[in-house]
Amino acid sequence: MSDTSWLSKFPQLERGDLIAIRKTLDGAYREFSRNYGDTIESLFDPLLTFLIWFEKLLIASPWWLTIGVILAIVYGASRSWKLCTGVLASLLAIGVLGMWDDTMRTLSIITVCTLLSIGIGIPTGILMSRSNKVQAIVTPILDVMQTMPAFVYLIPVVMLLGIGKIPGVIAVIIYAVPPVIRLTNLGIRLVNKETLEAATAFGATAKQRLFGIQLPLAMPTIMAGINQTIMMALAMVVVASMIGVKGLGQPVLKSITNQYFTLGLFNGLAIVALAIIFDRVSQTYAKRTQKHLGGMNND
């Protein structure tokens, strides 16, 4: 008896039926994109305008000023001169090797995608932490977002919005936002219930408990989620370059198609440098936050 004989007990669609279903769905989506694509695209015009302005600002600003601002942010987050020295060396190497403009383009889109992911992810994680029903609904969606190959969800985005920065931002956010949602939910749920009960006993409202206790105590876990989101966003740089997003990904893609080993290596190392900078800064900030909270708890 064949191992697949049990399948015969279920009704099966004929090949022609499957083709008909696919054609119907494809036609419906094409019709939707024709009728509503321009309207949906216009909703993203403010974001596109900001992206273009921010990219031009980073590229047009003097390199020393840009590096100075980045170092100030790094030191403010980490309080580490060693990390600042490493960041300075990395940025100077990127400039000397002629990758400054592409790095600024990548930095602009990654910064915007990270901020949008945080803006979407933390409120969603808060909702999940407050309701098991919301968690049960959102979790499978996050599973699909994390396991679906990026090239698959690029197809409907490109069909609807064409190629350019906005489809790239949407693709990056879909791929990168799940960690911050999951870890925000987890961090809030792990807050000591006795601490919350004590706050309630002192008359704290739900809003006061959230912003005064839960979010501060969950911040190290949330920062770990933000860190993962940044890493996943950077991992999408090369994929996003396939739909017209300029930056370090395009030279890497060009090196693949034309077998330019050195070009791909240098731009790949620049992406790695950005990833390490973001990783070290966010991790150091999370550790500082954790130590601060630990000191408060000891008091």
Rank of each mutant, 00 (worst) to 15 (best):
P251K: 09
Y36Q: 12
G76W: 01
R130W: 06
G249D: 07
K287T: 15
V169P: 00
I118P: 02
T195L: 13
T257F: 13
Y175F: 13
I256H: 04
T66P: 05
V134N: 08
M219Y: 08
D101Q: 14
A233V: 09
I122Y: 04
V239H: 06
D143M: 11
L43D: 04
A136C: 10
G68K: 08
Q290A: 15
G76P: 00
G203R: 12
L71A: 01
I213N: 06
D38C: 00
I271F: 01
M223G: 00
V281R: 00
W81N: 11
A20R: 13
T39D: 10
V177Y: 01
Y29K: 08
V245G: 03
R79K: 14
Q12H: 14
V172C: 10
Q283R: 15
I110K: 03
T39W: 07
L127A: 11
G268V: 07
T139P: 03
L43R: 09
K133G: 06
N298C: 05
D101K: 12
G168T: 02
L161V: 11
A72M: 11
A171S: 13
R34L: 12
V152W: 01
R30M: 08
M159D: 04
W6E: 10
R182H: 02
I271Y: 00
N267H: 05
A176V: 10
R30Y: 11
C113F: 07
T289D: 00
M99I: 07
T184A: 03
F202R: 11
M219T: 15
V239L: 14
L51F: 06
L97I: 10
I222P: 00
R34P: 02
A93G: 07
V144C: 01
G162Y: 02
G187F: 10
W81Q: 09
I110G: 05
L154D: 00
T124C: 02
V74H: 02
I59N: 03
L47A: 09
S282W: 01
Y175H: 13
N297V: 15
R15M: 08
G125E: 03
I110R: 02
T66M: 09
I137E: 06
V239D: 03
R105N: 04
G268P: 01
Y75N: 06
C113Q: 08
N192A: 07
D3C: 05
I276P: 04
L91N: 02
V237D: 02
V157R: 03
K207W: 08
G247A: 04
I70G: 06
G86N: 01
M104S: 08
T147E: 05
T111S: 15
